[in-house]
């Protein structure tokens, strides 16, 4: 520090700065490929989840809008049509043969037809759907609160998660699935929706039944729900991360 910086040293420092800039960018990119580093960055997810849950009242409600706020067209994203033989057969019959199956760690496994679900208490909500990609759309959803179903099947005390299995497989044959914990499962706005904008749920939006979890991002809200499974953990389901997109590196807690 006392010495005057010589020209050579200055040049050296300039080069070093340039080089470190380049290395920084290249380094960031190669670090992204390292599983240990991804794990390191992912540690932020747990912090985010804990802090968000800590400062969010359990029953804090997502904002509800009016009909004037509805999106002119509610977008179709992800699977547009599951297109399997089983699904096409259900469509053929207007889902008259479809049954929602609820099992796993419950006292009273159950099945519900669409008509039976429609006879249960319902909730209607106009909410904003936020996609992980960045866009938002507002739709009017009607469905049965998940808590109503859970109260009927009575989960075992050790149960921690509710897993939703969907009808749409990807090209590798892996079916879409998602999971939420009880904090979200019993939230009043968490519903199994069968209507969108006063019409039966269109195929593109997940007919006959899709999940709404209004305090998380869109990918948590499984479409084409066929089966609900209550579990203690999801280690044995697919890649064990608790959801289709989670298995591909997305956060299980999608509150942001």
């Amino acid at each position: 520090m006392k010495k005057r910086i010589s020209l050579g040293r200055r040049q050296f420092l300039t080069r070093a700065a340039q080089l470190s800039g380049l290395l920084f960018l290249a380094g960031c990119d190669s670090l992204s490929q390292k599983p240990w580093f991804e794990g390191f960055l992912s540690s932020a997810e747990g912090v985010t989840r804990r802090v968000q849950r800590l400062i969010t009242p359990r029953k804090a409600m997502a904002r509800e809008f009016t009909e004037a706020d509805l999106s002119p067209l509610f977008p179709v994203n992800g699977t547009e049509n599951p297109d399997t033989d089983e699904y096409l057969a259900l469509v053929e019959n207007r889902f008259a043969d479809w049954q929602l199956e609820i099992g796993g760690l419950v006292e009273q496994p159950a099945r519900f037809s669409l008509a039976a679900l429609r006879r249960l208490p319902s909730r209607t909500q106009i909410t904003r759907h936020d996609c992980v990609e960045g866009w938002s759309a507002i739709g009017k959803w009607k469905g049965v609160p998940l808590s109503v179903i859970l109260d009927q099947v009575r989960p075992h005390p050790q149960t921690r998660y509710v897993v939703f299995h969907s009808a749409d497989p990807d090209e590798m044959g892996q079916y879409y699935y998602e999971s939420i914990d009880f904090e979200d499962a019993y939230h009043p706005q968490t519903i199994l929706a069968y209507d969108l904008n006063d019409q039966p749920l269109p195929i593109g939006n997940g007919a006959p039944l899709r999940l709404r979890v209004e305090r998380q991002l869109g990918y948590k809200m499984a479409k084409y729900v066929m089966r609900i499974e209550l579990v203690e953990n999801f280690d044995s389901i697919a890649d064990g991360k608790g959801g289709y997109w989670e298995d591909q590196g997305y956060e299980w807690y999608a509150g942001i």
Binding site: C28, E38, Y250
Partner: peptide, 23 residues
């Protein structure tokens, strides 16, 4: 690509970087 991290389209990893360093 030269302006994004990671360079290729990889939303999941972009979010991991973003939220860690946001904290």
């Amino acid at each position: 690509e030269w302006a994004t991290l990671p360079a290729h389209q990889w939303l999941a990893m972009g979010r991991r970087w973003h939220f860690f360093f946001a904290w």
